[in-house]
Design a protein around this nucleic acid. Structure first.
Lengths: 112, 112
DNA sequence: TTTAAGCTTCGCCATGTAGCGAAGTGTTTA
DNA sequence: TAAACACTTCGCTACATGGCGAAGCTTAAA
C-alpha cells in the first residue's frame, strides 16, 4: 500500500527504522556539520544513496542541511525525537502496571 | 534494497512506523486480550491484513498471541519499547546541550 | 573561460510491503 | 458427521524503497 507517512510521528519512526539512518544521526552527534560526501564515505554509499537517506531524515525534521558554497553541512535537529519519546512514554504506565502486578503477586505469595 | 531488519531495534522502529500498528498497540493498552477479528474490525481491515500487521508486531516482540480454542487473544509485551526509549535517550544529551547553548546565549544577551 | 568538485535529480532495477480474495487448518456447534 | 467459525497461508496486484550510474546544476579553482 501507499506509504503516505502523513503524520509527523510516522515519518520519525520510519526514519529511525533504518540502521544507516540511525548511524548517520549517531555520527552527527559526535561530528556535527559533516558534509554529504563525508557521510557517504563513512557509510560506503554513493552520493545519490546518501542524499535519499538525508531526504528521509530531513522530511522527518531530524536533520538540517546548510549549503555553504558547494558543500552541504548536515546537523542534528532533535525536536521530533522528543515527540517519539512522548509516544513511547505512554507505555511507561503499562510497564508500571505490569510491575505492580508482579509485586502484588510476590506479596500475595508472601502473605500465604 | 532488501529490508533485512536483523537488529531488534530495527524491527521495533519499523513496527512503530505504521499508524495502524501503533493504533493496535494503543487499543491493546485499553482493552487487553482482543481477538484478531476484533482488531481487524476496529481498523477496517480483513483478517489477512490484520494477521500480517500482528506478524510484524510479534516479530518485534511487541505483542504476544495466545490461542484458546479457535480464537487468538492478543496482548502487549512492552519490553522492546524500553529498548527504543534507551536508544532515543542518547539524544537527551544533545537536547540538553542545545538547551544549555540557548540559555547561555540568553544570559550573554542579558549581560550586554 | 574552461575544468573540476559537491550535490541533487532522473531513470532504472530488484526486492519488499500492504492490501485483497481464495484456499487450507484446526475447533466448535448443530 | 456436517456445517460454521477463527485464523493463517498462498497467490496476486499495485506501489514504495534502496541502491546504482548518468546527467544536470551550481560554485570553486586553473
Amino acid at each position: 500500500m501507499a506509504k503516505l507517512k502523513t503524520s509527523g510521528i510516522d515519518r520519525t519512526f520510519w526514519a529511525l527504522a533504518d540502521p544507516t539512518r540511525r548511524g548517520v544521526l549517531q555520527r552527527l552527534m559526535v561530528e556535527p556539520g559533516l558534509s554529504v560526501s563525508d557521510l557517504a564515505g563513512r557509510f560506503s554509499l554513493k552520493l545519490p544513496g546518501m542524499t535519499k537517506h538525508l531526504d528521509v531524515l530531513s522530511d522527518a525534521g531530524l536533520i538540517t542541511r546548510t549549503k555553504t558554497g558547494r558543500t552541504v553541512a548536515v546537523n542534528l535537529s532533535a525536536a521530533p525525537m522528543r515527540e517519539a519519546m512522548t509516544w513511547l512514554n505512554q507505555y511507561e504506565r503499562f510497564w508500571a502496571v505490569s510491575l505492580d502486578r508482579l509485586v502484588a503477586l510476590v506479596e500475595e505469595d508472601g502473605e500465604q
